[in-house]
Simulated assay, not measured.
Amino acid sequence: MTTALITGSTAGIGAAFARRLAADGHNLVLVARDAERLRLQAAELHDRHNIEAEVLAADLSEEAGVAAVEARLSDTRHPVELLVNNAGFGNKGAFLDVPLADELTMLKVHCEAVLRLTAAATARMRKRGRGAVVNVASVAAFVPRGTYGASKAWVVQFTQGAARDLAGSGIRLMALCPGFVRTEFHERAGMGTDNIPSWMWLDADKLVAAAMGDLARGRTVSIPDPRYKTLMGLVKLVPRSVLSGLSSRTGRRYGPN
Rank of each mutant, 00 (worst) to 15 (best):
V156L: 10
G149F: 07
V55R: 12
A153Y: 08
A119W: 06
G93C: 08
L100K: 10
K108H: 13
C111D: 11
G131D: 07
V66F: 02
V133T: 06
L166S: 01
T105I: 02
E54D: 14
A153P: 12
G88Y: 03
V155D: 06
N135R: 10
N135F: 07
R128K: 12
A71S: 15
F142N: 04
K152H: 04
N85P: 05
N85W: 09
F89N: 10
V69S: 00
V156Q: 11
T76N: 08
A71D: 11
M106T: 05
N91E: 13
H78W: 05
A94Q: 13
F89W: 07
T105M: 11
V84K: 08
A163D: 07
K152L: 03
K92W: 07
E62G: 07
L83R: 05
R128Y: 03
L166R: 04
L117V: 03
V84G: 03
T159Q: 11
A121D: 09
G161W: 11
L60F: 02
A87L: 00
N91T: 14
K92I: 05
V133N: 14
L117W: 03
Q157I: 02
Q157V: 10
T122D: 12
V139K: 05
G90S: 11
E62P: 04
Q160T: 12
G161H: 12
V80Q: 06
V139I: 15
A162K: 11
E63I: 14
Q157F: 02
F158M: 12
S138A: 05
A67P: 03
R77P: 00
D75M: 02
N85L: 06
A71Y: 00
A120L: 10
R72I: 02
G149K: 13
N85S: 15
A71M: 11
R128E: 07
P79Y: 02
D75H: 04
M106S: 07
N91P: 00
E70G: 09
C111E: 13
E112T: 12
R130H: 14
H110S: 11
H110V: 04
F142H: 07
G88Q: 01
S74A: 15
A64N: 12
N135H: 09
G149I: 09
R128L: 14
P79D: 01
V134C: 11
E81L: 08
R164I: 05
D59C: 06
A94F: 10
V136M: 13
T147R: 11
A132I: 03
A64V: 01
A140Q: 09
G146E: 12
A113N: 03
K127P: 00
